[in-house]
Design a protein around this nucleic acid. Structure first.
Lengths: 304, 304
DNA sequence: AACCATCAATTATTATTTTTCATGCAATAG
DNA sequence: CTATTGCATGAAAAATAATAATTGATGGTT
């Protein structure tokens, strides 16, 4: 019936990765001849070439590029299926692939993961950050099993549960004129350098919920990858940043920075844990959500 | 290396579909013996049973259920890949699988599809309605290539473009007391029977944007599948419905129904066309969006 | 209780597919 | 010009998969 076998996808991927049939053959533990045969047969059956033969090298045709994208999408899913079944057979529970869509949540996640690993010794936790389609796409595409995000999305097939409430605050350095004020208004940032993580402006709450509604903007916008460096920059007076209050207070021993409320009533935010509904009855997955929820309630006791 | 082959997924699916190895073998053009062999080998390699043998029948184990879900997800993608390549080889362009998330849009879609088919004779158009995960999940999962929906979703990996503006109105029959009034207020529906398509209340604009904000509700709620029957019911005084104005006006020759504005300012809605960003440069896909956009502008001329 | 039909598992055999080996040929580098 | 590298090919060998023919087990029917 079907033409495309797993091995074909495997070959297409290996050739693209190693550039030649010979090299790909080595990786696949086959001879070059065997590959050449299968490739010819595949192209014959498909009725079109997958590679242009240019001299002694191969360049993918349009069909080849397409097949490569299919291979890169499907093969990892097969591998993951096998891994999950292997773990199942060995009495282990499985693996939990967590995707992060929110930079500062990383610190929070660590606090959940360590008790979780203790409770579920047979579950591997794997934290990922880069996805082909962004967060929910990764969920739908089975690249991850759980998503940590500030933007929930109530759509059929996915469930989101709030697991963490926090206040987003402005972080300022020791000499900063705003240090110690009760709160800051959008226009007071128009002379400032704002430091953020490298994500689109639509995903930065300080823009969407604070500056843009008031028609304000900072003087400059600097991009920093990591929280530590960001705090260092702020501490040395190079700019201001927007981070969760708990994170700022956590780090205030290490860096000389202080939180300032954003607006008169502060900027309330929530973090959500999203997962596929079909997975809702996987016990070790459910347990992660529950554990996060427990922490949420604990945190609440401190709040008021 | 890998254990799971396409054929295994094919077998798992066929057995689940036909209930027995023998029946599955027939469908797969194999003998029962051949299947029994492969099945035993697969279970051996995985290290766990895929089916419980209960007397002479097979019942999937937990692992079997899981494999079945993987099969149902991956096999259609392989089939579609092959189809696309086949069409490619024959000089055809490909196929456009359109998912509909909005019942009354069907009529609109027909108006776009016929000129499209004329412009792109080598493209097959396939309209689907049922998805494993709902609309965007189907996009992410490559079940469809294009989604017609009233709820756009600006997420990395997906693009949504508005293609159709319309006004949602209440539809009433010939003897109805509301017929001819300038507009209707939410509370005026509290004695009515409301007829809707069979979708969740959260997806019905008349609830989310009209009744619920005002704390109102209809006396009864009836569910009808098709637009024609719905209009027939309304025309015979069995209830009222909420539909796009253009659709009501289109059908007013066929059914004795009239539109009534919802609220003082009317209920403005938009329909969006969503697709994967990675597909943005597929010409025949782009062309569909452009064509829909042309119709939008044409429609606008009539509006004011 | 005997009989029949259905189904999965075995076993031995046959058929098919895949891989290898031994080459040839073309392109490239030195 | 020669050595090298890489892909293609045909025939033989090896590995894999499918089949046919049975067996044993399980229900349902009379």
């Amino acid at each position: 019936m079907g033409i495309l076998e797993r091995s074909h996808l495997e070959i297409i991927r290996a050739v693209s990765q190693h550039g030649s049939l010979t090299a790909a053959a080595e990786k696949l533990h086959l001879t070059q001849s065997a590959l050449s045969h299968t490739v010819r047969k595949l192209e014959e059956q498909l009725g079109l070439p997958v590679w242009y033969r240019e001299g002694r090298s191969l360049r993918p045709t349009q069909a080849g590029e397409y097949l490569l994208s299919v291979a890169n999408r499907l093969l990892p899913q097969l591998v993951h299926t096998e891994e999950r079944l292997k773990q199942f057979a060995q009495g282990e529970r499985g693996s939990l692939r967590i995707g992060m869509e929110c930079h500062p949540c990383y610190q929070w996640l660590l606090k959940i993961v360590s008790p979780y690993l203790a409770q579920w010794p047979d579950v591997d936790v794997d934290v990922k950050q880069k996805f082909q389609f962004g967060g929910i796409g990764a969920l739908f595409g089975y690249e991850i099993d759980m998503l940590v995000t500030p933007d929930p999305l109530y759509k059929p097939g996915l469930t989101f549960e709030p697991v963490f409430d926090y206040e987003q605050v402005l972080v300022v350095g020791p000499q900063h004129p705003l240090r110690g004020v009760e709160y800051v208004l959008p226009k007071q940032l128009s002379g400032e350098t704002l430091i953020t993580y490298p994500v689109a402006i639509e995903r930065l709450d300080i823009y969407t919920l604070f500056l843009i509604p008031a028609g304000a903007a900072p003087k400059r916008h600097k991009i920093i990858e990591t929280t530590d460096i960001m705090l260092q920059m702020v501490a040395s007076g190079r700019g201001v940043a927007a981070l969760p209050r708990w994170l700022v207070e956590d780090q205030s021993a290490k860096f000389d920075v202080a939180p300032v409320k954003l607006g008169k009533r502060g900027l309330a935010k929530q973090i959500f844990l999203g997962f596929r509904e079909v997975d809702a009855d996987i016990d070790y997955l459910r347990a992660f959500v529950d554990l996060a929820d427990t922490h949420r309630n604990k945190a609440r006791l401190f709040l008021h």
